[in-house]
Amino acid sequence: MKNIVITGATSGIGLAIVKALVEKEENVIAIGMNQVDCDTAYNSLQRPKSLRYIPIDLSSNQQIDNQSKLILEHFEEKIDVLIHCAATVRQYFMTNKEGYELQFQVNYLAIFHLTRNLLEAIKNSKGMVIATSSRVHRRTKLYFDDLMNRKRYFILNVYRKTKLCIAIFIHQFNRLFMDKDLIGYAVDPGLVNTTIGAQNTTGFFNKFWQFRSSFGQTPKVVATYYLKLIYEKRITTAPYYYKYGKQLKPSAYSRRADIGKLLWKASEEYVK
């Protein structure tokens, strides 16, 4: 029985993965944004004993710190798999209480922060980190003097950069921790039929996402790609980016060691 922590677990891909893991009777801590969403999801799964929902608003680094302790206590400092599915799309530039832009915070910095907080527990189990990236990370780069896109805020541009950060993060994670028998994977789920693009957007973007996502795969099918990584033999050769269950090279920019180092350092500064 594995100890698995998963974010974004109250809807979309995250909820589908939780469902599949509950069927396999794994020990799961599922993270949702607030108590109401967590309760709704928990009830919809018929409240299994092996599953526990913990609300963490990933836009708040304070909450991530506080609730990480709960997770570590519950799993007694041993985590086999940490899956990051939480993400947000925001039409306008907004910040959290620390002044961090919300897409950057929820889609990327929360991943860095939570992984860092749970790292020892993952090391104890020689565990795995899986994060959800996207093909939109291609053909874009980061501006390290303006990581939160204050000067160039455009809804899709920002989302692409956060997904790029995830691809960079996974590669740097492997550079730092593969020799300790840890592994990180970035999953590109393709186009998925979820509400991510419709929750905090208006007008054209909102309608466009509702139309486009109707052509996507269902979360249930996408969840199988994640489960494949968890249950099949661990592949420790690059690339660590998977689409539709197969290895795929992410952008050359995301695989650069110098960029990985820069982003890691910048992230450490934001959450120290």
């Binding site: 039409q91 306008y92 530039f93 907004m94 204050r150 805020y153 905090n200 208006t202 007008g203």
Partner: peptide, 26 residues
Amino acid sequence: PTRPDIVEKLKSQGVFGRLSIVNISK
């Protein structure tokens, strides 16, 4: 548009509301 509830309110003002929104960073 500093909070989602404010964006909701501006949305409810129709096209005029939406066209008047400028990102706060700008």
